[in-house]
Design a protein around this nucleic acid. Sequence first.
RNA 1: GGUCCGUUAGCUCAAUUGAAUAGAGCAUCUGACUACGGAUCAGAAGGUUGCAGGUUUGAAUCCUGCACGGAUCACCA
Length: 593
Amino acid sequence: MTIEKIISDAVSKAVKELYGAAVAPETIVPQATKKEFEGHLTIVVFPFLKISRKAPEATAQEIGAWLERNCPAVGRYNVVKGFLNISISPAFWLDVLRQIDSDPDYGIKRPDADSDLVMVEYSSPNTNKPLHLGHVRNNLLGYSLACILAANGHKVVKTNIVNDRGIHICKSMLAWQKWGNGATPESTGKKGDHLIGDFYVEFSKRLARDTKEIMERDNVDKEEAERRSPLMAEAREMLRRWEAGDPEVRALWKRMNQWVYDGFDVTYRRLGVDFDKIYYESDTYLEGKDLVLGGIEKGIMYRKDDGSVWADLTADGLDHKLLLRADGTSVYMTQDIGTAKLRYQDFPIAKMIYVVGNEQNYHFQVLSLLLDKLGFKWGKDLTHFSYGMVELHNGKMKSREGTVVDADDLIDAMIASAKETAADRFSDMTTEEADEIARVVGLGALKYFLLKVDPRKNMLFNPEESIDFNGNTGPFLQYTYARIRSVLRRAGEAGLSRDVELALPNEKETALIQKLADFRGVVAEAGRRYSPALVANYCYELAKKYNQFYHDYSILREEDAGVRALRLMLSDATARVLRTGTGLLGMEMPERM
RNA sequence: GGUCCGUUAGCUCAAUUGAAUAGAGCAUCUGACUACGGAUCAGAAGGUUGCAGGUUUGAAUCCUGCACGGAUCACCA
């Protein structure tokens, strides 16, 4: 039972007894009292005025007086305009702290046998180039979202659909065949995904050169010139052979994709993300066809004279959407329908979440509609967890402009930067220990910075700012955590016992307990709104509050055993909530740094 | 042009979905140290929440219009 629930129940009862009418529960929302007023929780009484038929002040007074008499948790109250500020008694706060302290999983709700299953799709890379900064935001959001959902009692399946076929893959393969001289990750020492990416870039460069020549020679536009390019013809021919199952092409494709997967695995591991089930587009791209053809009979789709198949979505405010080309082959949408079908067969999915960039908003609007029409029960309320672009402070990063920030390079830079920033702190450590902490801090900085922002918004990533040990940053949280652990270690060494009667908390300590108590609500809210940013910003507020608290008291030198024990318990609880909270963001917390 | 999304302090971001005087950090300025970890803390300054209307006891938040920025409207994925 949270303290908010206790108060809102009591208010509900008060209104009923005082005015003889029930009030809708959702209109009673206790919220933290603003710091310039006295009290812990505030009730807004405006919604009750229709029932009480009295002025706001009078209504608040009467409810406050009733609560003081009948609700043991309420110590004092005061009224400002239509706001009823309630002070919870210190003894009650102490109980709250004890509750937090005794629950190792505080704030977390574990799934049970009846829990529904949520599938989260994220990452979804192409196998023709390495992961970049945009993928990093995607991966961190997807992973964190899965953690948050799991913490809210859902069964979660993390999935990844690998885009491993198509013309873009053939481009890399062709370039390798033509100009690769048999290069392998082993022979070049390059990570497989980077090696393949380099050949893709090589192809693009040569194609651009050819295209330009043809444009001038034949006086045609860029699109047409590209179509006439012999390089493109070769790539298309390779795709045709791939689709026909040509053993030679398939063998090359398998070999090169494996290099890429090995490379991706390294990057995923470094980022600390993982998947429960990986789907490959080469396995699923034919799957949607039957469903689409079946849709024709149901009247959901129609066939044009040239044989192509479409869905008319104009009644839903959208356009006509192509689903099968005139030659019978699938498009992206058809494949996503097929993948959905497979997943539905594989898992009892109650809810599907796609973590995909906001440039595909329209695609998912259409997908939701089509899946619904085709009879998937979760089609209608599938969630496209849409996120904005990441920009660097020195300019946009788009793959076409060739200014992509590579994920591996970025991780390296973050770790190097953490090492440099904290060099003097590491002087008394072994090299291994210093390296490990630099890794944790560098990645923590990256993760926190990318996750604290509202996902829908385009954001500006500033590596320098992210690794600052002050302010709203990952390293600040990690530092706070490490310092608390250090204090607790010292307390243990000194044999300071918490096994005494705890003192009642003062105002400052109460404020920290209240913040800690909020954690449960924050996790639930983050689960409801799919918001890692909510958790991130809460963690920062908690760390900040603890720092203020910490600065005011000499915890270890405190002479009153009860007060000291209370403060140690508060420190311990703060460290644990911090660790749990940042854990939901995929961050690691160092014991020392 | 149609649709969707965004616009909050000099900068980077919040605001628990409609509540009190819109909050943090960075940067700037002023203070506080024989420090249980100062990688800290306290304070100041910084705002017509893009603009104009509307609804409401109450609007950054909801509605309408406009401006600016982004995305999308492929027989690409």
